[in-house]
Amino acid sequence: MKNYLVLIPARAGSQRLPGKNMRQLGDKPLVGHSLAYAQDNGFSNMVVTSNDARVLEYAKEVGVEVIKRPDALAGNEEPVVTALQHAVDQLQKKYDAVILLQPTNPLRPEGLLNEAVSVFEQEGCDSLMTVSRSEHKLGTISNHQFIPYNYQMGQRSQDLEPLFYENGLLYIFKTELLKQGKLLGAKNYPLIVDHPFAEIDIDTEADFKKAELYLKHYTN
């Protein structure tokens, strides 16, 4: 097995859901679910990068290494890749690959992480991302007219051409890609996830309420 680093970026300053990374979801804060998930799957090399004092303190309390993220790398328009680059640059130990777990995707199928690592190694990937199939009939609007994009009017949903969306549950990528400012490489494997947890990506209060419902319904 390669030498993996689990990176969890959890910046302060969410505008739509202030303080969301430390919002209590079930028995732990949002960021705690990603930490516990990595630990439960046998990963111990974990780092939280954040400019939020509460997040950093919580991570320390549960025995996880922290990197203070500069505020200059924590703005609303700043891509997450710069925070990841900064975190890896601060570490003395070198890693073959990075596993990115975003706190905004706190619910993940139990065996997904180890499955993803196995696929990543077996396929010799540069990177791996999780995707899920979209069952929606999509279209565009032009001159107040709806124009179907992925179907024809009257077509059954089950006959749609398979289209997939990036669900954000996890990413794995070679550390060398970060030096190029990339998370996804030329040989990127899309791992299909067919699970209700793929629907959870928390940006708003409504998203958080949905996560609470799914946590209660699918884990009890």
Rank of each mutant, 00 (worst) to 15 (best):
F208V: 03
Y149C: 12
S157Y: 11
V47R: 10
R69M: 12
E205P: 02
K93S: 08
A59S: 05
M22S: 04
P18I: 00
N188V: 04
N220A: 12
E78Y: 13
N41A: 13
L73T: 06
S118L: 10
L177R: 06
F43T: 10
D96Y: 06
V66Q: 02
T49G: 14
A198D: 09
Q102P: 03
P79T: 00
I67R: 09
N41C: 14
L169Y: 05
E115P: 07
H195W: 08
S157V: 12
E123D: 11
V55D: 03
K137F: 10
M1N: 08
A36G: 00
L17R: 05
V66M: 10
V55I: 10
Y165H: 10
P109Q: 12
D71M: 03
A211W: 09
E199M: 11
N41P: 07
P29K: 05
I147H: 12
V66G: 04
T175C: 01
L213Q: 15
I192F: 09
P106Q: 11
K216I: 08
G32I: 03
T175L: 09
N220F: 02
D96K: 01
Y95T: 05
G13N: 00
Y37F: 13
L215H: 13
Y4F: 12
N21V: 01
K2V: 06
V62G: 08
L191T: 05
D52G: 07
Y214V: 14
L7R: 01
P103V: 06
R23L: 10
D27T: 13
A38H: 05
